[in-house]
Design a protein around this nucleic acid. Sequence first.
RNA 1: GCCAAAGUGGCGGAAUGGUAGACGCGCUGGUCUCAAAAACCAGUGGUCCUUAACAGACCGUGUGGGUUCGACUCCCACCUUUGGCACCA
Length: 840
Amino acid sequence: MAEIGKYDHAPIERKWREWWAKEKIYQPSLKSAAKPFYNLMMFPYPSAEGLHVGNVYAFTGADIYGRYMRMKGFNVFEPIGLDGFGIHSENYAIKIGKHPKEQAKVSEARFYEQLSNIGNGFAWDNRLETYHPEYYKWTQWLFIQMFKRSLAYRKTARVNWCPSCKTVLADEQVVGGICERCKSQTTFKELPQWFFKITAYADRLLEEIEGLKWPKKIKTAQRQWIGRKAGINIHYPIVNEQGTRINEGRQELEVVCFTTRPDTNFGATFVVIGPEHQLVGEIAAKVSPRERKEIEKYVVQAMAKTENERITEGRAKTGVFTGCYALNRLNDYRIPIYISDFVLGQVGTGAVVGVPGHDLRDFQFAQEKKLPVIRVVVGSDGDKSAITKESQVQEKEGQMINSDFLNGLEINEAIEKMMVHHEAKGWGERVFNYHLRDWLISRQRYWGAPIPMVECPKCGWQAVPEVELPIRLPDLVDWQPKGDGRGPLDNAPEEWLYTKCPVCGGKAKRETDVCDTFLDSSWYFLAYPNLQTPEWHGQEQPFNLEIMKKWLPVDAYIGGAEHAVLHLLYSRFVWKFLSDQELLPFKDKPEPFPFLYGHGLIIKEGAKMSKSRGNVVIPDEYMSRYGVDALRLYLMFLGPYDQGGDFKDTGIRGMKRFLDRLWQLLAAEPEETETNEALNSKLMETIIKVDQDLAHFRFNTAIAALMELVNVWKASGKMGRSEKLGVVKLLAPLAPFMAEEWYQRLAGSGRVESVHRQSFPQADEQIIKAKDLVVVVQVNGKLRATLALPPQSQWDESSLSARAKEEVKVRRWLEGKTIQRTVVIQPTPKRQGLVNFVVD
RNA sequence: GCCAAAGUGGCGGAAUGGUAGACGCGCUGGUCUCAAAAACCAGUGGUCCUUAACAGACCGUGUGGGUUCGACUCCCACCUUUGGCACCA
């Protein structure tokens, strides 16, 4: 073949892509592979025009790591799929006016074509799409397993509602009152919904974060989201104006308040319950008609507010007095009970005890309602006077005051004493409060897995028999969301909508909501290795336990930090649940992703890429213009992989130049020339450097090291064939196409295995040892000379400092000075030496 | 407000407590060309000294202190930026 001066990427890429696919070089034997390594990347959702450069960034880094591990002797399994079921894909279909099922076919073709172009070593036989009945059959199965263990339950609740997406959302999917998906303001709706009881796993989800090798940031985000706090639930009897207890039937009413600070309880001057609190109704029934009217008016107003309205009101405190009092049994004070929307129904017990002296919100409320303020902690400046301004914070240390038997104690002692006191009296019990709430699964949408439940008028809610799975999503013409709180499936044909009750055989109606898309993605990584097993195609359960044991947990999970509290939390929950039920064989392995690498975000001109800004970079153009290898190198060279970077067109040309230079050097004759020592030594150093860098996802410095090698090579000589092969292997994980081309050209005639099945080069340390030793000479810590010493020579401290003193420049700086001290570090081939003269 | 991370040339960034700015982009000059692009070669932190060159001096990693023979790196305080959580009791 005639040598081409430049790397002409298009035909080469095509050639090797086809060959790799034909030879299935990236397809490990799932049953019998030795040293299995599950290299997983978060699968994309195909909602827009196609893969954008951010996806390519994510997949390239992950793939380099996978290729590196393969060359390190592992059988790497690197599957890919599409998260194409759910609200994001459906919203895109609505936008372009196409049926989601039709659009899915188009997106699928487009994504798989792009994904095959980016040069990843995917195991194509194991791809999956979450919208295929074959897949969502098992999503529905998972729902039923939860239901069978009472971890899926139905409850009418005030839930987040997105008026634009026309569906309810989980708490995790609402960020600051804004829909995570479409960025509209969310409101609330009272609807019967299916929940997964993820809170039952809160403690394990929190505690088992500890052993994870994850980015600190993501671990912290999960801890904060779970938000466990130790405190006490204090029970206050409810009394009327005259101080007599109020009864509901035979039961005496009480209000329970959660607090982390029972030490301040002598400073309590009111109790506030949220507008959705169940006591609201009970109290309203006991008070005068006028008060009842006030209460009802306020509750209606408060419930209608959106989260955003509450914020824009400037957090002004509003509220209404109930006419009832809570009895503080510590001092027999009757403290008034108010209803206010600054207390959230889902937090703690939905009721708080107001201590206005030591909490800003309580203080504001007390000011508004003219309630007394009592100081119970001495100020940090020793202030013991009455609190009159908003200046106070919740002190974390200080001495108690005005608090009877707590007086003089430090806060922490007081908390403990108060806890003990309440427990002893039976007035309260220690509890943990969590920020985490149960996972809302229902969605009033079309494009999702139908929830596999039926409602029988006689037998109530029943799970569909597992043999009937999948419950297929019916083809609907009128599939768009209505916004009336019922899903589009409510308009499905009668034959779909009505079925037999699995218990009594009578007529029963199917659930018409579909599953949250995060349920689809909570277990996809468990599915990939099973796609060829009889279990997957059977009816019992989807997992072949032998294969699961071999390949899971996932060895390396690579993805973005945007899923810190969504997907990653749900997946951990599902894994723990399935293991507990022995549906997965991992009782001894508490986590699905022991190692997670969070890659950074690619931005464009300092801004996040988005269609509305019009700055989305589509990779195809760059791939065809500069080649996949150049694009991969460019993206990885932007900076540390966990930091992302700003995409600029000019940088990619530098990568093309680098590849062209390397091409010329590889093509240079004669190939049998001995490689010179300096170049050979540089090669060995590069091998060590690239090896370590790739192992730690430091792709930018690995590429820089290869560039240095090429610069030295170009400046200083020729390289023999076996050394060239070494360079090509170093390049292989980063630029797989060009590496394959040159491996095949250099490896000789006959059938040659792919470079991607070769082992990673090993450095010959002897060659590095032949290099000159470097010694840096300083005077008072300032660099004055560098020495290059022959490698064989032996230097002890005194001969080394004597040698250093001989240097002209050093001598000049030592002239007329007395050496107080000399610091000497011996040079080694891997590390420079040092002589530092400390003079007066 | 709470928690976390980060501040280095014109830009992206590199540096187990030991030559700060590797590598790349950009820029400047040159080669090639009718010309341009591309490519290739050389230079490129700042200030100063020297007619100039060779060379040399001082300053320099957000700010101010500290530890050390020696600090981008470790410690303390502050400033700034980014990310997460947030009327969370």
